[in-house]
Write a protein that binds this DNA or RNA. Structure first.
Length: 429
RNA sequence: GGAGACGUGCCAGAGCGGCCGAAUGGGCUUCACUGCUAAUGAAGUGUGGGUUCCGCCCACCGAGGGUUCAAAUCCCUCCGUCUCCGCCA
């Protein structure tokens, strides 16, 4: 959640952020009003409570008749305390309700506007020219079927639409991709993690996914558990309610997990193949850093993603998402989109977000600041969290299509070959 | 699935309904002593919030409710940990 103290001291950036996100700006003033109501209610309650506490000491010391009369006297006070407490709690709840509706304060330079207002930062590599090579590219599903590697029909039979089986060499290709991604992450200082995919409501809410996107998430009614859409959820919750030591630099985790998405509201979109599915696998980078280091870490994550794309020998572009298309938690987001020949389009393969202190505030994750000139006891403050994609099942789409050969076989990028028993091609069956 | 025990500060571990934000031990920090280390002694050492802000006040003893003038302490629910029995991998 956003920093209410900062908002109170200087509301204008928050108003501007709301405007850029095309969100409700008036809520900022509602929060300021709720905050002052809350604080005066709290003061009232606390002074009454102090009075009651003082009285309680007298009651404890007194005996006999004196005690009885004090008891009669304090009863009224107890009732007043109770109602003041209720008022104060209500005011706090109201402020909370408002504050939780506000998405993260955007970072400077994030373009205003919605989904189509992204900024293209650069293009890397050239899209492969199939007409110059003299053949028409097949799409990833056709290639997957030719190589015996993707079975959508049986996926649908067993589990329904948007489910699939990966088989044989394509299954191995996914494992190779994810293992390389993990190894790359490890080499960048990430600790490998295999995470839970079912989480409690508090964890899901903490990462900011239960807001406007809650219809995207699978919920198990019987157990009140949510299936995660990314291991980011578990990795953010991992240090919930903890005070971290950030003196040795960022704490980095690479999460490997299955991811589940309902894809509600995307009926008819990307229905062919495995580009948009209910279940896929992902290796995700997640960093806890000091606020001052957040921007630099974000740039590093983007660079690491680009390294992976380069190893996969894919051409892509890097975009910065516009404010209105950022998630609730993100203050800035970069996507890398790979060229997909049969769609004549760039499609998202990676996404890296700087969530600044937004998630950490909700999940209560702090660090101890170094004490001034060696004195004991530094203060605590929220850390920043960032996440970024190292690889996902969707990458197979780009790999299959971009590295296909005229006969429908698929070349395996050199970086993946060691993970596939040195095979260099996926043959047609 | 059945029966029971327990959840207190960085760790261990006390805690009659008011004198408990919490004994004691360890750890850690600082200081003193010592040629260095060790040992010893002294002081300090949770988090969040309010404020008339070098001080005072409020809240927090797994979480949430309740009883009471007053709850770490009593009652209920939930979460978690452990033990035993049963069952299944």
């Amino acid at each position: 959640m956003i920093d209410v103290n900062a908002l109170r001291e200087n509301p204008e950036p928050f108003r501007a952020s709301q405007r850029a996100r095309q969100a409700d700006e008036s809520i900022i003033d509602s929060i300021i009003a709720a905050d002052s109501t809350r604080r005066s209610a709290l003061s009232r309650f606390e002074s009454l409570r102090a009075e009651q506490n003082a009285f309680g000491k007298k009651v404890a010391a007194a005996t006999g008749d004196e005690k009885q009369s004090l008891l009669a006297e304090v009863k009224e006070l107890a009732a007043a305390v109770k109602s003041a407490q209720a008022e104060s709690e209500d005011a706090k709840a109201e402020q909370d309700r408002l504050v939780r509706q506000v998405a993260n304060l955007i970072e400077p330079g994030v373009p205003s506007g919605g989904e189509d207002d992204f900024e293209v930062l650069r293009h890397v590599g050239r899209p492969r020219d199939f007409s110059a090579e003299g053949f028409e590219p097949k799409d990833h599903l056709e290639l997957g079927e030719l190589t015996g590697g993707i079975d959508m029909e049986r996926g649908a039979k067993v589990s329904g639409a948007r489910f699939y089986f990966l088989k044989g060499m394509v299954a191995r290709l996914e494992l190779a991709l994810l293992r390389l991604a993990m190894d790359e992450a490890i080499s960048h200082g990430f600790t490998p993690m295999i995470t839970p995919t079912l989480v409690r409501p508090e964890t899901m809410a903490g990462t900011g996914f239960l807001g406007e996107h809650s219809d995207e998430i699978y919920h198990l009614e019987e157990d009140d558990l949510y299936l995660v859409g990314t291991s980011e959820v578990a990795l953010a919750g991992y240090h919930g309610d903890e005070i971290l030591d950030m003196s040795d630099g960022p704490t980095r985790y690479a999460g490997w997990s299955s991811c589940y998405r309902r894809e509600a509201g995307s009926h008819g979109k990307d229905t062919r193949g495995i580009i948009r599915v209910h279940q896929f696998n992902k290796v995700e980078m997640f960093s806890y850093v000091r606020v001052e280091d957040a921007d630099a870490e974000h740039q590093r994550m983007l660079a690491w993603e680009e390294e992976m794309l380069a190893k996969m020998e894919l051409s892509y572009r890097v975009i910065q998402t516009a404010a209105g298309d950022l998630g609730t938690s993100a203050a800035r987001k970069y996507d890398c989109e790979a060229w997909i020949p049969t769609q004549d389009a760039y499609r998202e393969l990676t996404s890296t977000s700087n969530c600044t202190t937004f998630q950490a505030r909700r999940l209560n994750i702090r660090e101890r600041t170094p004490a001034a000139d060696g004195a004991a006891g530094g203060r605590t403050r929220p850390v920043a969290t960032l996440n970024g994609t190292m690889a996902t099942t969707r990458w197979l789409v780009a790999l299959l299509e971009n590295h296909q050969q005229s006969d429908g076989s698929v070349r395996i990028p050199a970086a993946l070959q060691p993970y596939m028993g040195a095979a260099d091609v996926i043959d047609v069956q």
